[in-house]
Each structure stands twice: as C-alpha cells, then as structure tokens.
Simulated scan of single mutants.
Amino acid sequence: MDTDEHLIREASPEDLGAVVASVSGLFAEDGARHDPHADPSWPEREGAEYYARLLSSPDGLVLLALTGQRPVGHLVGRLNGPDPLRPSVRGAELESMRVAPQARGSGVGSELMRSFLAWAAERDVNETRVRAFAANTGAQRLVQPRTRPQLP
C-alpha cells in the first residue's frame, strides 16, 4: 500500500534484519519502560529465529514500513482461533507495532493498521485484538474510536 512517500509491504526473509531492528526499538522504548519483566535484549538474541518462523507461517503477518528505502516501522500480526469455547470465532491479533520517532505523525501507523485490518478481513476474521501496555497512550490513541459511545 503506497501513500505519498511511504510504502507498507509484507516483509520478506531479506528484511529480517530491518524487522528485528524495529522490534528492538520497540522493546527499548516501550517494553523496558512499561514492563519491568521484559528482557530488552530478546530481539537481538531470539528475534531473527522468531520472525523467520512467522514470515513462513500462513497464520502470520509481518509488515515493514518504508520511507524511500529506509525502514521506519513494522507491524506483526497473527491469526488465532477458533477454540473450544468459541468455535465460530476466527481472530487476528496485532502482536506488535512500531513507527520510528522521525516518522510518527506522518500516517505510517494508520497505514500499518489499515493493512493489518485488510489482511484480517481477507482471511474471514470476525474478531481483532491489539496487544498493548495500558500505559502506552500512543497505542491507545491509534486504536480508540474518534468518538466514544455514550454508555447508559
């Protein structure tokens, strides 16, 4: 999906280093700050193997955001379900997402989200979830509706 100067595309095995670098940035910025139990060295230690498996999985999605030839973000999603409790639910979870500081506010995050939702819709997903820390207000702004429904 191309927008002005940004390109959002599915990552390939050749992009593994860029994906791991973006995930490392996410761990440093978000995980280390919001989760005292997170190991910020995990992406460098185990990320290449983890994301290589996800790239080859039909149930996984790894998107890379580029400005020109420069990686400026990523999104990782996966399909899940159905399960015995909810046999008719097929879900997709947005596992992680990051936009580099220099590209924030440019629409890259919104384009990553639109691409994830389109991917999920193509797979007949009827439930999507986003995994984010409660203290991550940036992630909350991205996924919250523009207007809040009035509760009775």
Rank of each mutant, 00 (worst) to 15 (best):
D59M: 07
R114D: 03
G91Y: 00
L117K: 12
E127A: 13
G105S: 08
R78M: 12
E122C: 04
R148D: 05
R98Q: 13
G107S: 02
L55D: 08
R90E: 00
N136Q: 12
L66M: 14
A11Q: 06
S96R: 06
P40E: 05
A65E: 14
L61P: 02
Q69R: 13
F116V: 05
A135R: 15
D83K: 03
A121T: 09
D35P: 05
A18L: 04
M97H: 03
V72N: 02
W119N: 03
T128F: 06
V108L: 03
P36H: 13
R90C: 05
A38T: 09
A52N: 09
V23D: 02
E127K: 11
R148E: 09
V72R: 00
D59C: 09
L61M: 07
A100Y: 04
V108I: 11
E14N: 13
L85P: 00
E95D: 09
G138E: 14
T147Q: 12
T128A: 14
V72H: 00
V62E: 01
G31E: 12
A135M: 11
A134L: 10
L75I: 04
D59I: 00
G73E: 08
P36I: 10
S96I: 01
R129G: 11
A48D: 02
S110I: 11
T67E: 15
V89M: 06
A121P: 00
H6G: 05
E93M: 11
P84E: 06
G138V: 12
P84Q: 06
G47P: 01
P149K: 13
V62S: 02
R148L: 08
H37V: 13
W119R: 03
E10G: 12
E29Q: 09
H74K: 01
D30S: 15
Q69T: 15
D59R: 13
A100T: 15
A52I: 00
R45F: 00
L26M: 12
G73V: 10
D59K: 07
D59H: 11
M1K: 01
A38L: 15
P58C: 04
E46N: 06
V72E: 10
P36K: 12
T128K: 10
R78N: 08
T147P: 00
A11W: 04
P82Y: 05
S22G: 13
S22W: 01
E46Q: 07
E44G: 10
S88R: 10
S88V: 07
N80I: 05
A120G: 07
L55G: 07
V62T: 03
M113G: 01
L79P: 04
V23L: 05
R131E: 15
W42N: 01
A28Y: 02
L63M: 04
E49A: 15
L55W: 01
E122P: 00
A28H: 08
A120L: 06
G109V: 08
R123Q: 05
M113H: 11
P149N: 09
L16Q: 05
A100H: 10
A134Y: 08
P101W: 01
T147N: 05
